[in-house]
Amino acid sequence: MPTSSSSSAQAARAAVAARLRELRLEAGLSGVELAQRCGWHKAKCSRIENARTPPSDADIRAWCAACGAERHTEDLIASSRHAESMFVEWQRKQRTGLRRLQDSYLERYRDTTHFRVYSPDIVPGFVQTPAYATALLSSITEFRKIPNDVSAAVAARTRRSQIIHDSHRRFALIVEESVLRYRIGDTEAMTGQLGHLLSIMSLPAVSLGIIPFSASRPMWPLEACYIFDDRLVQVELLTTDVTLRAPTEVATYLRAFDELHKLAVYGEHARNLITSAIAEVSGP
C-alpha cells in the first residue's frame, strides 16, 4: 500500500497498527518473540506497529495466529485493505464538481441487490425528484465553493436512481419525520418531492418507513448511512465520506438499522405523516 499524505488514511493505518500492538500485548509477547513466532526480522514488528510498513493480509494472519487471536483476523484485514479508501475527504471528491461524484457510485449500485438506507435530514438520493436534487446540490456547490455542474449532476443522479424500479432488487428506506419537514428548495419543489414519496411507496421493491417525532427512542438518530447488501456501509458526514467494510462494523450498522426499523411506521400511518407535511408546506 503506497504512502498517502491524507491524514485520514494515515489515521486509518495507525488504527490498524494500534490494534495489532494491543493483540501482541494481550498475548504477553514482546516484539522480538512475535517476530520469532512469525519467522520475521525483529524490526518488522516495530515497523508495522508504528504504521511505517502497512501489513499484508498474510502478515495480519500470521500476527493474529501468533497471538492466539484468529477471531480478529478478518476485521483487521478488511480495515487494512481499505485504509486508503475508508476516509475520503469531500473536498477532494467534489473539487471538480458533483457530476463525477454521482457517476463514481454506479459500480457499487450495480453490484448491490439489497439496499438499506437511513437518513435523519434529507430525502435519500434514490427517491429525490430533479427539483429537490437541484436545490440540494446547488446548496452543496455554494457551500463547498466548487465548480457549478449542478444540472449535469442532477441528470446523473436521476439516471442512477432508475435502479429503484428494478424489481430484482430490494430497497429498505428509513427516514426521520424531520426529513419531511426540512424545506429543501421552494414550496413547489418540496411539495413535489413529498408527493413523489407517496408514489414510490407503491413500488413492489420499495419499503419506506418514517420514524415519527412522537416515537419513544431507545435508538437515537444516527448519521445518514447507506448499507449495500451485507458487505459495505457508506456513512455521510459533513467533511468525510466513510466507507466501512470490516465485518463487525457492517454488522453493527445492520443491527442499528434493525432497531431503527422497529421505530418506523409504514403504510397508511406513513402516508398520513407525508400528507400532513404536504399540507404544512402548502400552507392555508
Rank of each mutant, 00 (worst) to 15 (best):
E142T: 08
A66F: 05
V88K: 15
Y105R: 14
L76V: 00
E142I: 04
C38L: 07
V117H: 07
A78L: 01
Y132H: 06
S104I: 10
T112E: 06
R116C: 12
R24L: 05
A131N: 14
E84A: 04
T73W: 09
S30G: 15
L29F: 06
Q91E: 15
D111L: 14
L98N: 03
K93Y: 15
T129Q: 06
D59M: 00
R47I: 08
L25N: 15
S139D: 00
T134S: 15
Y105G: 12
R71Y: 01
E89S: 12
R47V: 11
H41W: 01
R144D: 10
A27L: 11
A27I: 11
L106V: 09
P54Y: 00
G28C: 08
Q94S: 12
Y118V: 05
D75N: 11
A83M: 07
T129N: 07
V123A: 02
E33N: 07
W90K: 12
A43H: 14
Q102L: 08
F143G: 01
V123R: 02
S104R: 12
R110A: 15
L136S: 09
R81H: 09
D103V: 12
I146V: 09
T134Y: 08
H82F: 05
A83S: 14
R61P: 11
E84F: 00
A35S: 10
K44R: 08
T73M: 10
I60T: 11
H41P: 01
Y118A: 02
Y132A: 02
C64P: 14
E74A: 13
T96Y: 07
Q91P: 10
G39Q: 04
C45P: 14
T73V: 10
G97C: 11
N148I: 03
V123I: 05
L25G: 15
T53Y: 09
A133H: 03
E89P: 08
I77M: 13
A65S: 15
L136H: 08
H82I: 02
L106E: 12
S119C: 02
V123M: 02
Q36H: 06
C45K: 13
R100G: 14
Q102I: 08
E142V: 05
A135F: 06
L76Q: 00
V117K: 04
D57T: 15
F143T: 03
H72F: 10
S119H: 03
L23M: 13
T141V: 07
V88N: 12
T53R: 13
A135H: 08
R92T: 14
E22Q: 04
L101V: 14
P147E: 02
S85F: 06
G125S: 10
W90V: 06
A35F: 08
E33F: 01
E89F: 05
N148M: 04
V88A: 15
L137F: 14
P130S: 03
